[in-house]
Design a protein around this nucleic acid. Structure first.
Lengths: 204, 204
DNA sequence: GTCTATACTAGGATAGAC
DNA sequence: GTCTATCCTAGTATAGAC
């Protein structure tokens, strides 16, 4: 195996373990064993455990390319089709987390442990989405499509809350304990629907 | 210090540390040091680290007494005042997690680590609330107060999602990064409002 | 690129004195 | 009830051979 291949393989194994046990809970011994190499190999490719942990961010940044949720729905935002905007944001996020549950778990662990990894990611990737969505909602309030007496940030919080909580529950145990067993499409439809009716202009 | 006092003190210190670093990420050495005693003392009161971890559940069960969210709003449920039901459930939960953020964090860590602690708690305390709320929503659908085409469990998921995500964000960094700085009352009002309008009968 | 061997610290847990 | 000393394993990291 070439250097790059091995490096990538170790990184993938590490992501899996970090996503299960967090930074402090994962040992370099485990990573080495799971990758089928000696510990010396791990430290050959990554100077420290910390460096290996941070490499996750770079890897995810590369993997995602330039694509982020904002770009994907830019067209919909321009069209001001609220339902499509929220439905697609929700569905994309749920699908994304279903396809790659590890990264979300790594971030949760990192946030709970108080590790800087999550802060870096949130500052770079989450805050901008928050801002964009808040701005969109404020704009739609001016248009009269959304009630003016709701705080846009609270709406975003509600939206993200439904999304993250559902994605995390799916990843953690819905496969096992069928508290709620629905497709991502159905979830996205229901959540977008609740949110939009919830903040829409009051009925006459 | 008497045995019980010491035991309780060690437990409290342990909860704080487990809530920060999770089970695997917390060491008995740290616990002992933070409690100002030797490690031997820790193992005198708790046979193993695992036993100490599980003692958190018993302690919280005792502390909460018999009171759980269901009892607290039983009267409101009977009155079928939807807004009061959801508002109070939300506000109680947010206040509770604000007063005692450690426990929520311990549970999150435990769930992410795949430790049985969280499963025990969820089975005993969360599932019943889920069931109660789903049943209430189904009943209100029969009454025509809530649209019949929504899945009650999805509504509960949306509700709990807003609540847990907001509580966790508050605990993790809203004090620091003021993405959303509102009182629990305001949050509960907004979330209950969004949810109820969201699932209410369609406007004519 | 990969390994074995190793250094050294930290982790969980116990023995036995006071 | 509390400590020091200790056991043994596991954890991070490095040296040096192949």
């Amino acid at each position: 195996m070439t250097g790059d291949e091995r490096r990538s393989q170790i990184l993938h194994v590490a992501i899996k373990l970090f996503s299960q046990y967090g930074f402090r809970g994962t040992t370099t011994k485990e990573i080495a064993r799971a990758a089928g190499v000696s510990e010396a190999m791990v430290f050959r490719h990554f100077a420290t455990k910390e460096e290996l942990y941070h490499a996750i961010l770079d890897h995810k940044a590369c993997e995602g390319g330039g694509s982020n949720p904002c770009d994907e729905i830019a067209g919909l935002i321009a069209s001001k089709d609220d339902y499509q905007v929220f439905y697609n944001l929700m569905l994309n996020a749920l699908n994304h987390h279903e396809a790659d549950p590890e990264f979300m778990r790594v971030l949760f662990h990192s946030a709970l442990e108080g590790h800087e990894l999550s802060e870096i990611f949130i500052e770079r990737n989450i805050v901008p989405v928050y801002e964009l969505m808040s701005a969109y909602i404020a704009e739609r309030q001016k248009d009269g499509a959304i009630r003016a007496d709701v705080n846009p940030r609270v709406v975003v919080r509600a939206f993200v809350g439904m999304m993250i909580h559902h994605a995390l529950n799916n990843s953690l145990w819905d496969r096992k304990r069928r508290l709620l067993d629905i497709s991502n499409e159905e979830a996205a439809r229901a959540f977008a629907d609740i949110l939009l009716r919830g903040v829409g202009p009051a009925a006459e």
